[in-house]
Design a protein around this nucleic acid. Sequence first.
DNA 1: CATCACGCTGTAACCGGTTTCATGTAACCG
DNA 2: CGGTTACATGAAACCGGTTACAGCGTGATG
Lengths: 337, 337
Amino acid sequence: MATIRELARLCGVSPATVSRVFNNPGVVNAKTREQVLRMARQIGYLPNQSARTLATKKSFMVGLVWDTDHRRPGWRHPFFQEILIGLKTALSGRGYHLLMLATSGEKSHDAYVRAVRRHNLDGVVMIDSGTWDPSLRRLAESGVPCVGLDRPVRGPRATYVTSDNVGGARLAVRHLHERGRRAIATITGPAHTRPGAERLRGYREELSRLGLPQRPEFVVEGDFYLSGGHAAMRRLLAADDRPDAVFVAGDEMAVGALHAIAEAGLKVPEDIALVGFDDIEVAALMSPGLTTIAQDKAGFGTAAAEAVVAMINGADAPPPRILPTRLVVRGSSSPSL
Amino acid sequence: MATIRELARLCGVSPATVSRVFNNPGVVNAKTREQVLRMARQIGYLPNQSARTLATKKSFMVGLVWDTDHRRPGWRHPFFQEILIGLKTALSGRGYHLLMLATSGEKSHDAYVRAVRRHNLDGVVMIDSGTWDPSLRRLAESGVPCVGLDRPVRGPRATYVTSDNVGGARLAVRHLHERGRRAIATITGPAHTRPGAERLRGYREELSRLGLPQRPEFVVEGDFYLSGGHAAMRRLLAADDRPDAVFVAGDEMAVGALHAIAEAGLKVPEDIALVGFDDIEVAALMSPGLTTIAQDKAGFGTAAAEAVVAMINGADAPPPRILPTRLVVRGSSSPSL
DNA sequence: CATCACGCTGTAACCGGTTTCATGTAACCG
DNA sequence: CGGTTACATGAAACCGGTTACAGCGTGATG
């Protein structure tokens, strides 16, 4: 492995000059610079990142906190993969790498903080269950630039990225109303999760705006999973007065709901129209296709990368970024015949 | 930030001793060791990984090469997320972290090699399209311990992990045969991909074993995607003599096939039974549920971690690891009425 | 001509660990 | 009791970069 001193010797200059060629090209004489670059290519010189980090305290690495505890829901965020692609791409475009943080089972409250310190991470992105794990709170409060994905994060240099859940839910309800539905129920996410609460709020707001009554029996709490959607739908169907449309606050629950409706011998969209939320891959694969509120998947990653890099470069924590959502119409909300 | 010299001073020992406490606890006197550990905890001392790496050339980081070029299929491996969880967990249990490698758009043939060198990565895991990208070939040949996921990798210290595609395909065909089907077609993956070729081979082998004829018109090539499955199924249905069962070499294609069958006014499983491959999440969500060949998702990650760590610790490249597959029976292959 | 500014470069200390080698001490053995 | 050995530790070099500071040559300025 070629070192900076070797390269310097070959070029007849000092290591400092070589270093400057790479970090501060402006200050070094054009001729010298060219020569150093040429020689560097020739002998395959590569600056050693560890040495650099040791000297500068900048690692050009961002940690990804991704809580894969199977008891919690977060580990399978509906479009984790797309977020990850966006994040990786956006970070690498800015010269940063992504380190998957792991606590090696260590259950200390500052396991993450320690990992971040140990590796001199420049910033952190968190995507997880949204439960306020103390070790995550510590992390956000520790002062590293910190961006939460789909979960609020508070700390001296922390911000977050989320979708416009309220607006999306309103879009969904408005759409069902435009399709002529008036008895619009909702299956919500868990009340303690932020997306769950916000989507419910949007549903309520839009009902008010449309002058439709708020009917408590039309609000059933689900769990964002298939089985929860199934169970919730069965409860809705069991009531005397069943809805003619349901806004389901998550696509996976919507699939469960779809099955429950079919089991009850009813048809979508003829008897009950359905609108989901997320636009996961399955949504397009169902029959009928699932009308849903799409989130800007790649946008999550990009926005997170932007925010964390900005903070790394000394900016104050930017305000939370709310990504727009949009309605994707498919068969499950087609005009009934 | 507390350094090793500070800690040493506080304990009245030399930095060397402190270092030994952490790396070679056996050689240092029990009393001294305890004292150092206690003091370390008290002042929150954390060894700096960059300094360590600089001195030892071991980073305890493994790179993940994940080609997200959208023109290639690899970036959305059917169960990327599960593999990633398995990998992360298994690595972290062995004291390694996972660094998502990115080439920052650099199109050099040894972009990956350079990234690995620069960061002193101890090993690499690759999951991608399976196309022989020259920069990946270089990487495998560069001598870093290297494990391919669902793709063969050759190099001085390289091996790979894959599923028993042949065996799985045979299971599928045998199952359809047991259900009384005799006109068993297949929709394959692209012939140039390894899983595609192997699953086709399994299909052929099992037909032979069962004494069923090989009918060229019953073999249609797909692309592992929804649309390819749909198109392939239409071709099968258009023939004079249509099959009563299809082994589809990927679940996503199977979903496409299912739609094509429905569009043709036929029923699954009554008219045509279907068996997929992969056991992706959708498989259980369809109606009818998709009978499929399940792969050991978490096993991929674990096996890859084991292999790469073994090689890092000096072992020779272990032979390729073939993970067992198993049949998951659902509605799409129920006995026809 | 002395002075100064400017542009470029080198020297050397430093980042925070690890590791070789030497050394001191205590135990052990014939 | 002298010599060997094992054990525990410290001094110092080293890993490969960065950077504060000093120095040098050149041309401009008073």
